[in-house]
Design a protein around this nucleic acid. Structure first.
Length: 527
RNA sequence: GGGGCAUUAGCUCAGUCGGUUAGAGCAGCGGACUCAUAAUCCGUCGGUCGCGGGUUCAAGUCCCGCAUGCCCUACCA
């Protein structure tokens, strides 16, 4: 059993041949927010991401570019994928590549165990083969022929008839796990989330599972089957195992015991691999199944799933260059109900940036720090008698922190942010109602002025901590300007479950200047 | 063919176990205020809950049918 406070989170590994777009970045940001939150909550968090580098397509593009497949993958990892993580400030603890020795060795051990325990057998794989493509075609690339080939199945690329060929393959007896999988979904309703995803998975498994072909002989860019080196491992079987090989499966039992089982964040398109095949593999190997498999939705652009071919694919740096990484992170986490599809538009991004980040949060920080500077020589004011309006802010902060923590644990990132944002809005309202600028004109009201600004400052301190997993750059700047860095230590070390406690930032703490956290962006942002 | 999800205000979305007058943000309109990034705050306008049936004292919510869109149906976040 893993340590009860262990929180091991994974993303799908990037297929290196893809071009990074905001969909990849979306998954990473969601995982990163969860990981940062759990880290600051004191959990034993571990956040893994990486790349999937085997398979025929990669071999082919590498060959076309005149390099060995490993060299091709190296290039893409360094030029595309690691830079993507930097662009959006991803704080992953590890980065696994399916070409890492630790992975290849772990896959071999896992396969050997399944083979030794009788879960694998040699069989005949029969499928439609395209001579033009020189490969077996998945159903998605098979279409009905027209004209002279009417009535036949043809290749979607070559429009030529396919041949029914057989290949010797090794098979995993996945069908044997059908009942155990159904029992799992029944006993642990939150194993697959959200509920819509669970429904699909259950319906699929109830239709009956086939055994899974797990080896190929038609190309050699993959992990050799340990007992038969003429076969390489099927790429999905290989790829899924990254989640265990990265934490010491078969190599470091203590580390593995500390981390496993995982929480998997996946796109809904690859839900089946994670919610059906993967738990079946783990059951066969005698390992625990994951804690949760959470499927998020798609980003829709103009009502359609984005894609390169429809020219709706957007590179993350197109957004971050103008709005910054914090705005990217905030926008996708706040505007989209996590687990559902969500619409992206430049207009909506721009509007939320302006209304919520610049006018809401950024301006709140500016006005409070400006008044502390103006009326209290740039120091945190003292709290005197607390009035109901002040108590309401203090209570809201505690409630927002508790709600957000609970919502994060349920993967409802958007709801967690909404709960915290209530404090942003309440503080803006509080300041307007209390009119500290009017209090400042009356020396008799000095204590009241001090209390109001102390309350607002403490609210900013709570916001900086609660929002740091989402907008780490802006909150770090605010943290420094508040003087909290010197008084309380690094922002990333602040316990997030105590963020709603009150009076943490000592009166008298010296504060600094704060440049606009989210500067206004002039109007040519519409694209 | 089989299956999942969605359809609620101009836009993006909430709406729990069926229960009072269907909510929020943005946009629009009117006002207040000046500490602040022309910002903030208050008020206000705005809905045939996709369509048609049914169950019920009561339906956005449950059931049946239909329409439209997205997705899965064994290698794209």
């Amino acid at each position: 059993m893993a340590n009860p406070s262990s929180f091991y989170l994974t993303t799908p590994i990037f297929y290196v041949n893809d071009a990074p777009h905001i969909g990849h970045a979306y998954t990473e940001v969601a995982a990163d927010v969860l990981a940062r939150w759990h880290r600051q909550a004191g959990d034993d968090a571990w956040f893994l991401t990486g790349t999937d580098e085997h398979g025929q397509k990669i071999l082919r593009t590498a060959t076309a570019n005149g390099v060995a497949p490993k060299e091709w993958a190296d290039r893409l990892v360094e030029s595309a994928w690691k830079p993507l993580l930097d662009t959006i400030d991803i704080s992953n603890d590890d980065f696994i590549r399916t070409t890492d020795a630790r992975h290849e060795e772990g896959v071999a051990k896992f396969l050997q165990k399944l083979h030794d325990d009788g879960h694998v057998y040699a069989g005949e794989f029969e499928a439609l083969y395209c001579v033009g493509c020189e490969e077996f075609k998945p159903k998605s690339e098979i279409v009905d022929g027209t004209g002279e080939f009417a009535g036949e199945k043809v290749c979607a690329i070559h429009s030529k008839p396919l041949e029914l060929l057989q290949e010797k393959n090794y098979f995993f007896k996945m069908s044997a796990f059908q009942d155990r999988l159904l029992a799992l979904y029944e006993e642990r309703p939150d194993f697959v989330q959200p509920a819509s995803a669970r429904n699909e998975v259950i319906a699929f498994v109830q239709q009956g599972l086939e055994d899974l072909s797990i080896s190929r002989t038609s190309f050699d860019w993959g992990i050799p089957i340990p007992w038969d080196s003429s076969h390489v491992t099927y790429v999905w079987f290989d790829a899924l195992l990254n989640y265990v090989t990265a934490i010491g499966y078969g190599q470091d039992d203590a580390e593995f015991a500390r981390r496993w089982p995982a929480n998997h964040l996946v796109g809904k398109d690859i839900l089946r691999f994670h919610a059906v095949i993967w738990p079946a593999m783990l059951m066969a190997a005698g390992l625990e199944v994951p804690n949760h498999v959470f499927a998020h939705g798609w980003l829709l652009v103009g009502g359609e799933k984005m894609s390169k071919s429809k020219l709706t694919g957007i590179a993350p740096n197109e957004i971050t260059d103008t709005f910054g990484s914090d705005a990217f992170r905030y926008y996708f986490m706040r505007a989209i109900s996590f687990g559902h599809d969500g619409s992206f538009s430049w207009e909506d991004l721009s509007a939320r940036y302006q209304a919520e980040l610049a006018n809401g949060f950024g301006n709140l920080a500016s006005r409070v720090l400006a008044m502390n500077a103006k009326y209290f020589e740039g120091r945190v004011p003292e709290t005197h008698d607390e009035r109901p309006a002040d108590a309401a802010i203090r209570e809201l902060a505690a409630r927002a922190a508790a709600t957000a923590d609970e919502r994060i644990s349920a993967f409802a990132i958007h709801e967690a942010i909404a709960a915290v944002w209530e404090l942003v809005d309440a503080l803006n309202g509080y300041i307007t109602e209390q009119e500290p600028w009017a209090l400042a004109k009356d020396p008799e009201q000095r204590d009241r002025l001090s209390t109001v600004l102390a309350t607002a400052t403490e609210g900013l301190r709570a916001l900086a901590v609660l929002l740091s997993p989402v907008i780490p750059r802006a909150t770090a700047k605010l943290w420094t300007a508040l003087g909290a860095e010197a008084a309380l230590g690094a922002l990333a070390d602040q316990p997030i479950r105590d963020a709603g406690s009150w009076g943490l930032l000592p009166a008298g703490t010296e504060q600094g200047q704060l440049a606009a956290l989210f500067p206004r962006i002039e109007t040519d942002t519409e694209k």
